[in-house]
Computed example of a mutant assay.
Amino acid sequence: MIQLSTTQIFLMIFIPRLITQLLRALPFVMFGRRAISPTIRTLGATLPFAIMAVLVVYCLKSIPTGSLKENLELIAAVLMVAGLHLIKKNTVLSISVGTVFYMVLVHLI
């Protein structure tokens, strides 16, 4: 087992965090206070839905055909995420609760 020093652990956490923050700040630095083009506005409005659709397709592409129990667990979790998102309009909350709900179904039922 490799032993890491406190400095190495700090750098392993700090450097990716710094890169992430810089990448998130990049659009604000690039666009500043000037008007945002219609293309960027359209992408900002449509990309979140497109990404969620891709995630749903990826999640459901390998539904087992033989096990009714597993299919019901997947469908229940998808319905939970969709319903919660329609009610609360919070993506992080919807995905988090849906993941926990699915894990509870898989391990307790």
Rank of each mutant, 00 (worst) to 15 (best):
Ser67Glu: 14
Ser94Arg: 06
Leu108Asn: 12
Val56Met: 08
Leu4Met: 11
Leu4Phe: 11
Arg24Lys: 14
Met52Leu: 14
Met12Leu: 11
Phe101Lys: 04
Leu79Val: 13
Thr7Trp: 13
Leu47Arg: 02
Ile109Val: 13
Met103Val: 14
Thr39Pro: 09
Val106Gly: 01
Leu68Glu: 03
Ser94Trp: 07
Leu18Ala: 15
Leu4Ile: 09
Gly44Ala: 07
Ile36Gln: 10
Leu11Trp: 07
Asn71Asp: 04
Thr46Tyr: 08
Phe10Tyr: 01
Leu18Tyr: 10
Ser5Gly: 08
Phe49Val: 12
Leu108Met: 15
Leu26Glu: 04
Ala25Gln: 02
Leu86Val: 10
Thr91His: 08
Phe101Asp: 06
Ala76Leu: 00
Val78Ser: 06
Ser67Thr: 07
Phe14Glu: 04
Asn90Phe: 05
Phe28Arg: 09
Ser5Glu: 01
Ile75Ser: 13
Ser62Glu: 15
Arg17Trp: 15
Met12Lys: 12
Gly32Lys: 00
Thr99Asp: 04
Leu22Gly: 04
Leu108Phe: 15
Gly66Ser: 06
Pro16Cys: 09
Val100Tyr: 13
Ile9His: 08
Leu18Asn: 03
Thr65Met: 07
Leu105Lys: 00
Thr42Pro: 01
Ile109His: 10
Glu70Thr: 15
Thr20Trp: 10
Ile87Glu: 11
Phe101Ile: 03
Ala77Val: 05
Pro64Leu: 06
Glu70Phe: 12
Val104Met: 03
Ala77Leu: 05
Ser62Thr: 15
Ile75Glu: 05
Thr6Val: 05
Met30Trp: 14
Leu93Ile: 10
Val92Glu: 02
Ile13Gln: 06
Leu84Met: 13
Val81Ala: 10
Ala35Tyr: 07
His85Glu: 05
Ala77Met: 01
Phe10Leu: 03
Thr65Gln: 11
Phe101Gly: 05
Leu43Gly: 04
Ile2Thr: 06
His107Gln: 12
Ala77Glu: 01
Leu72Ile: 10
Ile109Ser: 10
Ile95Cys: 07
Thr46Glu: 04
Ser5Met: 00
Pro16Gln: 06
Met103Lys: 07
Leu86Asp: 09
Lys88Ser: 11
Lys69Gly: 12
Ile13Thr: 02
Val56Tyr: 02
Leu79Ala: 14
Val104Lys: 01
Met103His: 07
Met52Lys: 04
Arg17Phe: 13
Ser62His: 15
Leu84Ser: 10
Ala35Cys: 09
Leu105Pro: 00
Leu26Trp: 12
Ile63Tyr: 02
His107Gly: 09
Thr42Gln: 04
Ile2Phe: 10
Ile36Asn: 07
Leu22Asp: 03
Glu73Cys: 01
Gly44Asn: 13
Asn90Ile: 11
Leu74Asp: 08
Ile13His: 03
Leu108Glu: 13
Phe101Trp: 07
Leu26Met: 08
Ile95Leu: 09
Ala82Met: 10
Ala50Pro: 02
Leu11Arg: 04
Gly83His: 09
Ile51Pro: 01
Val81Ile: 07
Ile19Ser: 14
Ile13Asn: 02
Asn90Glu: 06
Phe28Ser: 05
Leu74Lys: 12
Leu68Met: 11
Leu60Trp: 04
Arg17Met: 14
Pro27Ser: 01
